[in-house]
Amino acid sequence: MEAWNLIIGNPVLNVLIALSHIFDGSFGLAIIALTIIVRLATWPLNKRQLNSTKALQEMQPKIQELQKKYGKNQQKLQQEMMKLYKEAGVNPLGCLWPMLVQFPIWIALYQAIMRALATTPENLLDLAQRLYSWDIVNQAIPLSSQFLGLDLTQGNIILAIIVGGTMWVQQKMTQAPTVDPRQQSTSRIMLLMMPLMFGFLCLSFPAGLGLYWAVSNMIGIITQYFFTGGWGYLNLRSPLQPTPAKGK
């Protein structure tokens, strides 16, 4: 834990507080700026993720063709799909790896927000032990928890809706339709579950974290829009209707 704080936790915390001083004490703007910095720093990973998404989107007509053809034989369908992925040089799980790599960064950012806001006297005392002796950091303490009428230490319903909404849009843009009714069901649940869960978490956790999620989602939507060249599957009103399989 000490190594984690030394290498990741404390540097992120001090940069966040220094940014807050640069933005005239606005902790909200510091969170937004740090979110953008983190997004830029992880751009190579995000780019890989977007490449996978884009390639999968381009392959959708072929995949749907396979789904129609082997709808009843799941094993054969999976084999054919894997063959297709191999031929195209696409890893269908390519989006998972970058997400896992970014996980420590998200946790560090989350910890930094929680620590910097120091909502209890114990937290403020703990913060003292983690700060560098930079003037820019110490002059920013303690941080104001107010940002655009939001109390960044409290959960907020409006932010929860924004986070849920932007997460839904981002997922909808990348979620390919399927003809398999069971996968349709899974997709529908996933599409709703994640935004609802993060919305719920926004109500329970400090709004500073919700702000980070909201900005991160918005950046995700924008980069996805420009990188994949449009809104992806967002405009698709309903998944493809399954074609009744005909016996050979």
Partner: peptide
């Protein structure tokens, strides 16, 4: 992927637990 309930349970358990484990930073 064929079992939405298993997937749902996995995701539901995973995310809050990860975040709750992080909330230890606050005293």
């Amino acid at each position: 992927m064929k079992r939405p309930k298993v997937l749902l349970l996995t995701v539901t358990a995973l995310l809050p637990l990860v975040l709750v484990s992080c909330i230890g930073v606050g005293q």
